[in-house]
Computed example of a mutant assay.
Amino acid sequence: MRLPEGCVVRDLATHMDDRGDLTEIFRLEWGTGIEPVQWNFVRSEANVLRGVHVHVVHSDYLVCMEGSMVLALVDIRPESPTHGLSTTVVLKGERLQAALVPPGVAHGFHFPDRSSLCYSVSHYWNLVDEIGCRWDDPALGLDWRVVDPKLSPRDTNAGTAAEMTRLFLDERQRLSMAHD
């Protein structure tokens, strides 16, 4: 499976004994490039879709703890060697894996069944760094295999992938100029 540049999917090792099990879901030494400032835990009902969103600044580090999650990824960074690449990855709680999503890779999550997601971010949440578009915009090149998912009002009313990309590039340019 080919992923956008900078995205990583890692199998996590679970250690079991007669009491239960333990899984390390994050270690700084793994070299993920993310030093989390915030961890979140999300429960989703069946057929919930969250996204599609892209971040200018922050990275996401995701672990599906229970159920399953279809993680959709679209690289919108013009300078990236994987620019335009669209793909989906299925993460399942029964096979713990972690996924890293860097800035500039648009992403969304579909939960086919009731699921739990634990994720961290490299920077505190900021509305300016949360740019979205319609999950079903054909320009994304995603085959969700989903009909009529449950969406938030924000995701229901999101604009086009072209608008999301323009806003992302404008904000990235603005931040770049502010740092010069």
Score class of each variant (00 low, 15 high):
E163Y: 10
L175H: 08
F109W: 11
G104N: 05
P153G: 06
S115H: 06
V101Y: 01
H110K: 06
H107A: 08
A158R: 07
V147K: 13
S152V: 05
W125C: 09
L142C: 00
L167A: 15
G141M: 02
T156D: 14
Y119K: 05
R174D: 13
R174H: 10
G159E: 10
I131Q: 04
V101H: 06
E130C: 07
P153M: 03
G132C: 12
S176N: 14
H110P: 09
R134V: 00
T160K: 11
P103A: 10
P149G: 09
L127K: 12
N126V: 11
A162D: 14
W125E: 10
D170R: 10
M164D: 10
P138I: 00
D137A: 02
D129F: 12
D143W: 03
C118M: 12
R174F: 14
T160D: 11
M177E: 12
G104D: 02
N126Y: 08
L169G: 02
W125N: 09
W135A: 03
D143V: 13
D155A: 12
Y119H: 00
C118I: 13
V121T: 12
F111W: 00
M177R: 09
P149S: 08
P102Y: 09
V105D: 09
R174L: 13
L142H: 02
W135N: 02
T160E: 13
V101W: 11
L140Y: 07
V128L: 07
L127N: 10
R154T: 12
R154K: 15
I131A: 03
Y124K: 13
I131L: 08
P138G: 02
V105Y: 02
F111D: 08
F168E: 08
P112M: 04
S115A: 07
P149H: 03
L169R: 11
W144C: 07
E130I: 09
L142W: 03
S122F: 07
S122G: 04
V128R: 13
P102G: 06
A106N: 05
W125V: 11
E163D: 14
D170S: 13
A161T: 00
L167Q: 13
N157M: 11
M177T: 09
